[in-house]
Each structure stands twice: as structure tokens, then as C-alpha cells.
Design a protein around this nucleic acid. Structure first.
Lengths: 208, 208
DNA sequence: CCGGACTCTGAAACGTGTTGCAGTTTACTC
DNA sequence: GAGTAAACTGCAACACGTTTCAGAGTCCGG
């Protein structure tokens, strides 16, 4: 008998064997979203999430090994929705930088509706340590895809701007968090996003 | 968030009435730095800090109302030292962007010596919520000053680049944290910092 | 339908940040 | 030097993330 300290959770690679498991996962994510939207990071309490999702605490931890992982899963969920929403109404601008600015302003606007939820997710993203590397990586990937799509750049063009896009991503996340914590105004956040977006459209990386 | 019934701590505005208080504060900061350097964010445990600084737990909380505040104070301390160290050996480059890149690479190198300490401080900075607004603001200010000094820009020139400098700051902090968490390589961090630094030296903000 | 393996539940327990408080010490004033 | 307010100490207690475990439930190959 091999001692497995923890059998592989159903969450990451295996998309749930059972219908009931998929439903449980959904209930958990929904409960978390609800609590986060109502009271932010601190209001997402594992016992409450479990109760609200009608799941035992141990089960919650089997699905999501920590509060951070849980909130990062919610973030991935929300990013997917945001991406879909944005795709529905394509932009009219032609300039990649302008398209990005416009998209990020839209994103800010959508966060203004649920600032507590945004704060909870962002805090989780920034607080994540090495144990959540994969989830953070997934979020980075999703965000980058969203930005590349929004920019309207071709794959080759986008490839020349990977670094610029990462800088934009960092600026987005940082300003979002600072704004949500009341450290900067929305105007300042917008300015910084615009500044960062100037990085695409100009020359690509200078040859080393 | 509770209205604090506690009498005003000696920390913020009042720079300690007594010599012994100054000494206590120093002991606390030193103990925190030691613990953080040894084991990172999680190793900074309030009971241990208190014991190591030879101070009662209640006193520790009187000086620093939370672990986050404590680590932000350490960060301010370290930023001051970094700033001083950097000023000792002035740069030879003339181009502001190059000067900034060089400075940030120096900073990364210094963090490589104490990665755990850097991780602890950065986690605190990113995790800070509204209750630490002032401390986060102070860190932002110190960092900005450091960057402006490093760039060698005049005050008027710097004023035209405030937003660019903020973007660089965000990129610095974000890449530092991602690197320390093992999410990106040092090379990638350097590339992104270089990309962000391209924002100064070019045209300032386009007129709205 | 059975048996075995995996999953879920409920509840207790631990670790660490944070708070509260009674009693002692310190700093300052008269 | 006595009196007083503030600061410090030691300790207990609380909150919440996380772990653990025994028993009940569920799934699936034969």
C-alpha cells in the first residue's frame, strides 16, 4: 500500500469525475464570489464559504488547498467572463495602444461595480507565495491573452511586445490594487495605464 | 476596521519621547529584519519578534499596530539605506533611462543577497490594506525619490515624467515579487525593467 | 448486488495574528 | 520626594486559516 499523503485533488488537471463534483466546485466558487463581493478579502472566511456552499470544511480544502488558491480560482473565473464580455463588443480603434487603453478602462469600470470582489482577488494575487505558482501563472497567461486580443496585434507583432505587455499587466494590477486601497485616484490609475500602453506601437525591444 | 481606542502610539508623528523608546523601536526593527532575512514573511512571528527584541507583545503592538505596519517600517528603513548606498557611488551614464536601468539592476543585486527579507517586505507592501495607507504612501514617496535621484532628471523634467516613474515603480515591485516567488526568471525581470525605463527620455505625456 | 477504494462529513484541535486587562515601572510635575 | 498619567509587562483569550481523523456516503468494476 503506498501512503499518499493527499490523493490528487479533483480540481486542477482532472475536471471533476462526477457531475456532483462539478456542482460542488461551482457552489464553492459562487459562495466565495458572493462573500468577496459583499465584504472583500477578510469576509471570505473558509468556514463561511464551506457553510454557504453546503460543503464540509475538509472538502473545501480538498478542492482548494488554501484561501489564496480559492481566490485565484475565482479570479480565473472572472477573467474568463471579462474576456468573453470584451469580445462581444469589439473595439473600433485601430491603434493598438489606444485599444489597450480603452480595454483597461472598461476593465476598471467593471471593477467599480464590485470593488470588494476585485480587492479580494487582487490581494490574493499579490499575496500568493511559491505554493500557488501554477495558479499565478495561469492568471498571468489569461491576462496576457486578454491583452493581446484587445490590442489587435498579430501573433508576430505581439511576440515583439511580450515585455511591454507584461509591463502593462503589472501596471494594471498595481494601479488597480492601489486604487482599491484608496492610495491613488482613478484619474491617476488611468494616467499610469495610458503611460504604460505607450510602450506598444512604438519600436520593439532594441537589439541587445 | 475598528476605530482604535488605543492612545496614540509613539511611532508615527512623535519620534519617541525617550531614549529608551528609540532604542526599543530599533531593537524591534532589527529583530524583525533578522527574522525576515532568515525565514521570510512567515518567519516574522509577532511573539518571536517581541521576545527577540526583549519587549512585551502588547508593547510591540503599541509601536506597530500590525505585522504589515511592522514590515512596512522595515521596508522604509531598508529603502533609506539603499538610497544612501546608491548615492555613495554616483552613476556615470548620462541617459536617464540607462541610469534608471542600472540603478534597478543594482537594487535587484542587493536583494539577491537577502531574498527572504525582500520577499517579506514586498509581500507586506502588496498585501497592505487601507489601514496602512500612510505607510504605503511613505514607501511610494521614498521609492519615487530614489528613482528621481537615480535618473538624474531635473525637477521640471522629472515632473513631466511622474507617471512614467510610477509605472517603473510598479514594474520594479511587481517583477521583484514575481522573481522572488519563482514566477519569472531574473532575466525576464531585467527585460521588463528595461522596457519600462524606455518610458523616460522619450516624449512626455501626450496632450489630452 | 458486493466489496473495495475513494470522497465527503462533522467536529475537534493547532498555530499565529490580534486584543484585553490587572498590575508594575517609568517619566514628568509640583 | 510624592503623586499622577502614561508606558510597559505578562498572560489569558479570541478569531480565523489550516490540519487531522473516524465514520458515513458514493462510485465503480466484477
Amino acid at each position: 500500500m503506498t501512503l499518499r499523503p493527499r490523493p490528487a485533488a479533483p480540481a486542477p488537471a482532472a475536471p471533476a469525475r462526477t457531475e456532483r463534483q462539478r456542482a460542488r466546485r461551482r457552489r464553492i466558487l459562487d459562495a466565495t464570489t458572493r462573500l468577496a463581493a459583499a465584504g472583500g478579502f477578510d469576509a471570505v472566511q473558509m468556514r463561511e464559504v464551506a457553510e454557504s456552499a453546503e460543503v464540509a470544511l475538509g472538502t473545501l480544502y480538498r478542492y482548494f488547498p488554501s484561501k489564496i488558491h480559492l481566490l485565484l480560482a475565482v479570479l480565473q473565473d472572472q477573467l474568463g467572463q471579462l474576456h468573453a464580455t470584451l469580445s462581444e463588443r469589439p473595439l473600433t480603434e485601430r491603434d493598438p495602444a489606444e485599444r489597450l487603453v480603452h480595454t483597461l478602462k472598461r476593465a476598471f469600470r467593471s471593477h467599480r461595480r464590485e470593488p470588494r470582489l476585485a480587492e479580494a482577488m487582487m490581494r490574493a494575487l499579490q499575496f500568493a507565495d511559491a505554493s500557488a505558482r501554477d495558479e499565478v501563472g495561469a492568471v498571468s497567461r489569461l491576462t496576457t491573452e486578454l491583452l493581446v486580443d484587445a490590442s489587435g496585434l498579430s501573433e508576430t507583432q505581439a511576440a515583439a511586445h511580450v515585455s511591454a505587455i507584461r509591463v502593462i499587466r503589472h501596471t494594471w494590477h498595481a494601479t488597480l490594487l492601489y486604487w482599491l486601497s484608496g492610495n491613488i485616484s482613478l484619474a491617476e490609475a488611468h494616467t499610469d495605464v495610458e503611460t504604460a500602453c505607450r510602450l506598444v506601437g512604438g519600436a520593439s525591444s532594441p537589439p541587445p
